[in-house]
Design a protein around this nucleic acid. Structure first.
Lengths: 354, 354
DNA sequence: TTTAGCACTCTCTATTGACAAGTGCTAGGG
DNA sequence: CCCTAGCACTTGTCAATAGAGAGTGCTAAA
């Protein structure tokens, strides 16, 4: 059901008041402070109606109303007007995110850092899923006498690497053979495709060369699904200042979110490319997240996801300010990447090493 | 000043009672439950004395006493008797820590995991300082067309690696030259020594080969001091169940400890090799740690530190149980490493690759 | 349709008094 | 001389109570 203009105005006023005070909002406060030209009684009626429609919650009979997840959703989608970033903020962001295109993880850390600094919330960065990537290059490097490092370069520029124990010395020439073989078989192939059919692609033929190489495949697989995708969080302590974190349950949920990271990874995964994604309170299935909002912005190069930046905070978030800020920071990152790409192109990109 | 036997007994009783209840302990409780053959009045006198000596604190006049850091220190050092681990506990630990010698970080994660499971506290693992290590091998690997991966193998088996952007294509033969040059110059050398004199060792001569290689040195340096030494924590949420974490300040301190990791790293650094190190409350200078105890146990291979395992919890910790447990887990790790080393030796260790 | 008015509900904040816990001190006993 | 019973004193906690304040929902009138 669509809300009429007046209901929207009232909802907006309630949300802004609640965001300011973190206290349930009463009708008279709205009537006196937000000049809608309505008496408290009228506003009361409208509030009762908004509550029935699910946009507001009421802690108990004689408290004011607080916005529900659904209320915030409507607010974010079609009521609020995004604030413009100030010149100062833009300046700070531009200064914080430097032109280091290849060390993409550093770019992400810088973004995370400035995001945490400019907001009252905790910033997050999440490494990407690699499902849609293709293998650009694989390198096997002998480390010491019995270890191998596998390095995979994906076509989005992400590099994953890991070390395996081979139990016994592997001759350099064998490594060379494996290396060539793996590249021959896997170059240009989709990560997920390889992962799902690892045996088909590399299992059989190599066995007879050296069966000590088996652990290599296991590790290769771990790399392919990016099993250890990292989540980085900054500014978590700031969230403790919010009164909603006073309740022990909420707090425990929060620590749980930090510690397991599962929820954050899952949310980052489901976000749409090139869009700001906002997950408000109980909109997502994770019980731990019911009092929090997560905002994510996937970063891509040539349609390939390279990572996600975001924010986590209480549902009572300053969406108006924060959403354009994430957008600006994300776009700045993309900008830098693009610049870097062009520069490299100008220098004449070689198709591949070796 | 040395405490007489009776004072020690009373201190011990107070600590055990306080550890059980987290409430200030009164004289009559001690008199009735711990049969020391003394009346409450006598115990009161002794408690007053212990307080004056700094072993006990008093929240207010009519509360009981709680042990101070100094009290716990005495208790840990010379009063308590460590419990023997149960057969079941030993079994669980042995089962949890598997024989994967080379992937040392996995060994550490397993240790951390079982430590968190068997105690009520949060377990930590910390990557080592590399100051005392020597370079065993350096590898430069070309990734894509304009990136280089530096891999350093230290003589304790730790591998550090990082990726640098070289701005432009570097010919394979140049990489080969750098590689040989770096190994020639740095093999067998102390990490810290190199770090302190990086220019002397590698700066000058290479410049004329290719000045695009400069970022390489910066990154090499970062690797050498292990600037990004990782701290891993497990079971942090469990600490929220302790009543002492109810106070918001304590909680904020805790989150701060988790988030910055500085205190943990510093504490891990100062610990003695091959010993259990216990840092109780305000014994260490970090304000955030004043209500917590950190126990660490450095892990070494051939006198070279390879990482630290530990626990963090409230000062009111079950030291009697937890200290022998960390000891056992650490020793198990060392055992596995040693076994692995012998195995490798049996197979005939080659001095070095290439 | 809006709004003034009012009774009603619920929470929050003192305030009070009772009480329990524990201390420190004193004086008497082994 | 050390130990302890006894007691006055301090302090925190808990429960009950009352009152204020905030806000609602309903009704009736403009």
């Amino acid at each position: 059901m669509l809300l009429d203009e007046r209901k929207k105005k009232i909802l907006e006023a309630i949300i802004e008041e609640y965001n300011r005070t973190a206290e349930p909002v009463g009708s008279s406060k709205i009537a006196s402070d937000y000049n809608l030209g309505l008496s408290p009684a009228t506003i009361r009626n409208e509030m009762a109606s908004l509550e029935e429609l699910g946009y507001l919650d009421k802690p108990h009979t004689s408290a004011g109303r607080i916005p529900s997840s659904k209320g915030y959703r409507l607010y974010v989608d079609s009521i609020m007007k995004e604030k413009n970033l100030s010149v100062k903020e833009k300046g700070l962001i531009d200064k914080a995110i430097k032109d280091d295109v290849v060390k993409f993880d550093i770019l992400m850390k810088e973004a995370s850092n400035i995001l945490a600094k400019l907001t009252d919330y905790a910033s997050i960065t999440i490494e990407p899923e690699l499902d849609n990537c293709e293998v650009e290059e694989i390198k096997l490097v002998k480390i010491g006498h019995d270890r191998l490092m596998i390095v995979i370069l994906a076509n989005n520029g992400i590099i994953k690497e890991s070390i395996v124990n081979c139990d016994e010395e592997i001759p350099e020439q064998n490594i060379e053979i494996f290396n060539n073989y793996l590249n021959y078989k896997l170059q240009g192939m989709n990560f997920k495709e390889i992962y799902d059919n690892i045996d088909k692609y590399v299992g059989e033929e190599l066995d007879n060369i050296n069966d000590k190489i088996v652990p290599l495949f296991a590790e290769l697989n771990n790399l392919l699904i990016n099993k250890n995708a990292k989540v980085h969080m900054e500014g978590a302590t700031k969230l403790l200042d919010f009164p909603e974190l006073k309740k022990k349950d909420t707090l425990k949920n929060f620590l749980n979110i930090i510690e397991t990271q599962d929820a954050i990874k899952e949310i980052a995964r489901t976000g749409y490319d090139g869009n700001i994604n906002v997950y408000i309170g109980n909109e997502c299935a994770f019980e731990d997240l019911k009092d929090f909002t997560i905002i994510t912005y996937k970063q891509s190069i040539n349609d390939k996801e390279v990572g996600t930046i975001g924010l986590i905070g209480p549902t009572r978030m300053d969406y108006k300010t924060v959403i354009p800020m994430i957008k600006y920071i994300g776009d700045t990152i993309q900008e830098k990447i693009k610049q870097g790409g062009e520069e490299n192109d100008r220098k004449g990109k070689e198709p591949r090493g070796d």
